[in-house]
Every structure is written in C-alpha cells, then in structure tokens.
C-alpha cells in the first residue's frame, strides 16, 4: 500500500527488525509440534469404547427383560 500522506509514508518506511534466528527456530519447532495432528491416547479410546459397549449392553439387557 502506498501512502499519499507524507507522515504515514514515513511511518511505513520505518525499518523492521529481523527476529533472532535461534529464537525463530525455537518458535518454529514449538509451533510445528502444535501443528501436528494429535493422536488420541489408547487409554481414551479404550474408555470411550468400553463405556459405549457398556451402555448398549445395559440397554439390550433391559429391553430383553421387558419381554
């Protein structure tokens, strides 16, 4: 974007610093770790599966006893 206003043009011309390379690499590694899709811990999978089967089993048992 170009600024017609000389004051804004001067502000836009202010030089930007370069981030510290070592710090940038740290940030990159931390960011990539967050970016990677997280795998669900096996304990959670087991918990969800067992509670689902438990609920369905209970419902089936209840329905069978009705008749």
């Amino acid at each position: 974007m170009t600024h017609d206003d000389p004051v804004l043009a001067r502000l836009a011309a202010l030089p930007n610093p370069t981030p510290d390379p070592a710090r940038s690499e740290q940030v990159r590694q931390a960011a990539l770790a967050r970016l990677r899709p997280r795998r669900l811990h096996p304990a959670w999978v087991l918990l969800v599966a067992s509670s689902t089967f438990g609920y369905l089993g209970g419902a089936f048992y209840f329905a069978v006893r009705l008749f």
């Binding site: 981030p19 510290d20 710090r23 740290q26 940030v27 931390a30 960011a31 990539l32 967050r34 970016l35």
Partner: peptide, 13 residues
C-alpha cells in the same frame, strides 16, 4: 520477542 512467539504459537494452534 516474547509476544511474537505467543502470536505464532497461537497461529499454529
């Protein structure tokens, strides 16, 4: 520098 790190970690999340 600390705030910049926060910004880009937020971007990754």
């Amino acid at each position: 520098e600390d705030l910049l790190q926060h910004v880009f970690l937020r971007l990754a999340e």
